[in-house]
Measured scan of single mutants.
Amino acid sequence: IDAAQIVDEALEQGITLFVVNNRLQYETSRDSIPTELLNKWKQHKQELIDFLNQLD
């Protein structure tokens, strides 16, 4: 699994991931984030931050 897949998966569930001051953040209108997704974010945090920083 790679960062792009995780970002896409989040988007499919209505969650936008982004980076502020090198910290992973998210925006969503959902009430809660699925635990499975949160765990993936934690496991791949640095990859996600690097990936999202490249997009900007």
Rank of each mutant, 00 (worst) to 15 (best):
Q25M: 15
E36N: 08
G14R: 05
Y26C: 08
A10N: 01
E12H: 10
Q46H: 07
V7M: 05
D31N: 09
I49A: 03
Q25K: 11
A10E: 01
T16N: 07
D8I: 14
D56G: 14
R23L: 14
A10P: 00
K45W: 14
D2G: 10
E9F: 05
D8K: 15
N39F: 12
A4V: 05
E12C: 11
K42W: 13
D2P: 09
N53R: 12
L17S: 04
N39I: 12
L52T: 00
E27V: 15
L24K: 00
I1K: 07
F18T: 10
V19D: 01
E47R: 07
L37N: 02
T28Y: 05
I1S: 10
L17T: 00
H44C: 06
L37H: 02
Y26D: 00
D50H: 10
K40T: 07
Q43G: 05
Q13A: 14
Q43C: 06
L52Y: 02
T16A: 06
S32H: 11
N21S: 06
E36K: 07
S29F: 10
I1P: 08
Q13M: 15
T35W: 11
L11K: 14
S32M: 08
N53E: 07
E47L: 13
A10G: 03
V20F: 12
K45D: 09
R23S: 14
Q46E: 09
L55A: 10
T28P: 08
E47K: 09
I1L: 10
D2L: 14
E27I: 14
D56E: 13
P34N: 04
I6S: 01
L17E: 01
V20M: 10
L52A: 00
F18Q: 07
W41E: 00
A3E: 03
L17R: 00
L52C: 02
W41S: 01
Q13Y: 15
Q43K: 13
T16V: 13
I6V: 06
F51Q: 02
K40I: 09
Q5Y: 09
T16K: 15
N21Q: 08
L11W: 10
Q43F: 09
L52S: 00
H44W: 13
N53M: 13
V19A: 06
D2H: 11
L24Q: 00
A3I: 14
I1E: 08
K40Y: 07
W41P: 00
V7F: 09
N53V: 11
E36C: 06
N21M: 07
R23N: 14
D8Q: 15
I1Q: 12
Q13F: 14
K42G: 07
H44L: 06
I49T: 04
L52M: 04
V19L: 07
R30D: 05
A10F: 05
T35I: 14
K42F: 13
E27C: 15
S29N: 11
D31A: 10
D2E: 09
L17M: 05
L11G: 05
D8C: 15
S29Y: 09
K45N: 14
L11F: 10
P34I: 03
Q13H: 14
G14D: 04
N53W: 06
R30A: 07
L38H: 04
V20Y: 12
L37R: 01
Q13S: 07
N22G: 15
K42C: 15
V20C: 15
L52N: 00
F18Y: 13
I49P: 00
V7G: 01
P34G: 04
N53T: 14
L24T: 00
